[in-house]
């Protein structure tokens, strides 16, 4: 009986973990879009960076249920670390600097995780917010190191692997960021489908029950928080390396708040949520900014209110109407998208 249950669980876990054809299609489409719009590399790079950053928040919010309003802290540490490494010529290879910056953010994540696992949601909001504000104030105070409000001067990113120069059109930057996103996405996918990832879901659903069945709740939360900090640090380092800029804005509260919006739009608790949310959020911004440079914030706000009121499920249904028709023609009835009532899987 027990072996039956176990093999059942393992079977379902494997089923979830398997690559679906639409995932292949997704990544091929992303690459195709990258090749199709060579004049839009910079904004696409921004979307990729935001997607990676959102992926990081999704790991702790969507999978482990840790709310955070200060995720920009790790983004900022990664950004400044990459900037300082380059400005002082400490590490010339961008890829190596990227990893070092990620690790720096990871160390901070590990240290602060002990504060974050204490207390419930509201406490966590306050603690994470506080840490980000603290770092922003520190960066401003030590403006001799960080460049303060003017930003860090003298960032000169050397060619990637000694071969690919970061060009004005952002071509190298885009494919570099995309490759990093893809690798880290694979890693995240592996993590959330592993027994470790499943135990996180159990903790999110009910920490007490999770503890009762023998899951070391705090250790798991510390681990995922640290991993998420690494991801955010990498996103920050990508920001610095692809724009050659680092200023106090990297710690800004808006950054953390925008990230929440991205997950609200895309949906937390599935890895593509952050990726899709980043795309939709940024495109909305771009379209409204083009139409009305002065009042675009009003329209963004309005759309967000509408999204929350109408509910993501219904919007998804509307958005999927045409693809559904196509799917119906191609694959018959069973491929049609039905709406799920809760956020799966």
């Amino acid at each position: 009986m027990t072996t039956n249950v176990q093999s059942d669980v393992a079977y379902h876990a494997r089923q979830h973990g398997r690559w679906h054809w639409s995932e292949f299609a997704y990544w091929i489409a992303v690459l195709a879009v990258g090749l199709a719009f060579p004049s839009r590399y910079l904004i696409m790079t921004e979307i990729v960076r935001l997607a990676l950053f959102a992926l990081s928040l999704d790991l702790i919010l969507g999978y482990a249920g840790i709310v955070s309003l200060g995720h920009a802290a790790f983004f900022g540490v990664g950004a400044y670390c990459a900037g300082l490494l380059s400005a002082h010529g400490l590490i010339d290879e961008p890829l190596l600097a990227l990893i070092v910056s990620g690790v720096a953010a990871m160390v901070l994540g590990f240290v602060t995780s002990f504060l974050v696992i204490r207390g419930a949601d509201l406490t966590r909001l306050m603690v994470t917010l506080g840490i980000a504000l603290l770092l922003e104030a520190l960066a401003e105070r030590f403006s001799n190191i960080t460049g303060g409000t003017d930003g860090l001067q003298g960032i000169d990113i050397k060619p990637l692997l000694g071969l690919f120069e970061f060009d004005m059109f952002g071509r190298t930057g885009f494919f570099y960021a995309l490759a990093v996103l893809f690798v880290l996405f694979l890693l995240a996918r592996r993590i959330v489908h592993s027994p470790f990832g499943l135990s996180l879901r159990a903790i999110k659903n009910n920490p007490l029950r999770a503890a009762a069945i023998g899951i070391p709740v705090n250790r798991r939360l510390i681990a995922i928080y640290t991993v998420a900090a690494f991801y955010a640090g990498i996103a920050g380092a990508l920001f610095t390396q692809t724009t050659a800029l680092a200023s106090l804005d990297v710690f800004a509260f808006d950054k953390s708040a925008d990230l929440m919006l991205v997950l609200v739009i895309g949906g937390a608790g599935y890895l593509y949520g952050g990726l899709i949310g980043a795309l939709v959020f940024r495109m909305l911004q771009e379209v409204f900014q083009t139409i009305t440079p002065q009042y675009w914030m009003f329209w963004i706000g309005l759309v967000l209110v509408v999204i929350v009121l109408v509910g993501r499920q219904r919007i998804h249904a509307a958005a999927l109407f045409v693809p559904n028709l196509i799917l119906k023609q191609l694959a018959g009835r069973k491929a049609v998208v039905a709406l799920s009532d809760n956020e799966a899987p």
Partner: peptide, 11 residues
Amino acid sequence: QVYNRIAGFML
């Protein structure tokens, strides 16, 4: 369902 949703968003 989720993966089909992804397919739709790609378009």
